[in-house]
């Protein structure tokens, strides 16, 4: 009998929750879509995701095919030219998009998970716990990440995007943690949170049910920001030769192009194309974030927009 009583209650709660979330997402999407800047961002972002998935299929040649004449400038056969090993640059670009996009988003994800964990813990706890965590955040905020990453990557056995994703992700969290902490601090004194606390809800439940849903836009903005940081930092490491040089990605392409003095031999497309891809993909995330900014801080936008 008791089971019969509680079960429907449980299920209705779950469906309520999922309904609440999907409608939140839809609202977000509508707001982003109605903003011109973030709409452009969404379209560009989706295009890159599609290229990541179908890059292998739409590439004119195999990215590792070295049978072409080396160091050719752009031509009809090779729209972006060929490398010093005789690979087709366009094919490398299309295939490499997947690795770079995944690296960016995965580092963003790792950094955001850590940021949410530290930010929530620090924002919700008071006294020594909060002091310690925000001090830790500040230390890692000030510590310049790239030299540390270079040391880490040099010592690590083997090279590859997994290594880069992990170490860049591990250093990308402090900024997000700081922002989230401040927001949790301000939300925790709101009436509905106090009400839930008085009702005896557990801390975990309050964080997940009352606070997190009100911070989704901030978390998403943090994720996109961390992904952009991940993109630029991983590309930098790959440019230094700390990635896997045999795996095509935007960063390793630039590494090889620089090694082959591509520009000085007139191979501008080889340098230009990966750089533009990095900028466009990064820009798409910045543009989407304009929309999230506007959700979080209505003052920044135009009133008549």
């Amino acid at each position: 009998m008791q089971n019969l009583m509680t079960e429907p209650e449980g299920t209705s709660e779950v469906s309520d929750l999922s309904k609440g979330h999907s409608s939140t997402w839809r609202t977000y999407f509508n707001i982003l879509w109605s903003n011109r800047k973030s709409r452009v961002g969404l379209i560009v972002f989706s295009t890159f995701i599609l290229i990541s998935i179908f890059g292998q299929l739409i590439a004119p040649y195999s990215a590792s095919n070295t049978s072409f004449p080396t160091m050719m400038g752009p031509s009809l056969q090779h729209l972006l030219g060929t490398t010093q090993e005789g690979q087709d640059v366009l094919s490398q670009l299309l295939v490499g998009t997947g690795i770079s996009v995944i690296t960016a988003l995965a580092t963003g994800l790792i950094a955001t998970l850590i940021a949410v964990f530290i930010g929530f813990l620090s924002g919700y706890s008071q006294g020594a716990g909060d002091d310690g965590l925000s001090f830790l955040t500040n230390v890692f905020l000030v510590l310049p990440a790239l030299p540390l990453l270079i040391v880490l990557a040099s010592y690590a056995p083997g090279r590859g995007s997994t290594l880069i994703i992990i170490i860049v992700g591990l250093t990308g969290w402090p900024w997000g943690a700081r922002v989230l902490r401040a927001q949790v601090k301000s939300l925790r004194t709101r009436d509905y949170v106090l009400a839930a606390k008085l009702a005896g809800d557990s801390t975990m439940r309050i964080l997940m049910r009352e606070i997190l849903p009100n911070m989704l836009s901030l978390v998403m903005a943090g994720f996109l920001g961390a992904s952009q940081y991940g993109l630029l930092t991983s590309v930098g490491l790959e440019f230094l030769g700390l990635g896997n040089p045999n795996q095509a990605s935007w960063g390793t392409m630039l590494y090889w192009a620089q090694n082959a003095s591509a520009l000085l031999s007139g191979q501008w497309a080889w340098i230009l194309a990966p750089g533009l891809c990095i900028a466009l993909f990064g820009m798409s995330m910045v543009l989407i974030n304009f929309g999230f900014d506007r959700i979080a801080n209505p003052r920044l936008g135009g009133a008549e927009e």
């Binding site: 630029l232 630039l254 520009l263 000085l264 340098i271 750089g275 466009l280 990064g282």
Partner: peptide
């Protein structure tokens, strides 16, 4: 500003060397 901010520094360096140096 937003656009400039999305390029890697070293990429700008490459382009600057190419155009203004080379």
């Amino acid at each position: 500003a937003a656009f400039l901010n999305t390029f890697p520094y070293f990429w700008f360096a490459l382009v600057a060397v190419y155009i203004m140096g080379f």
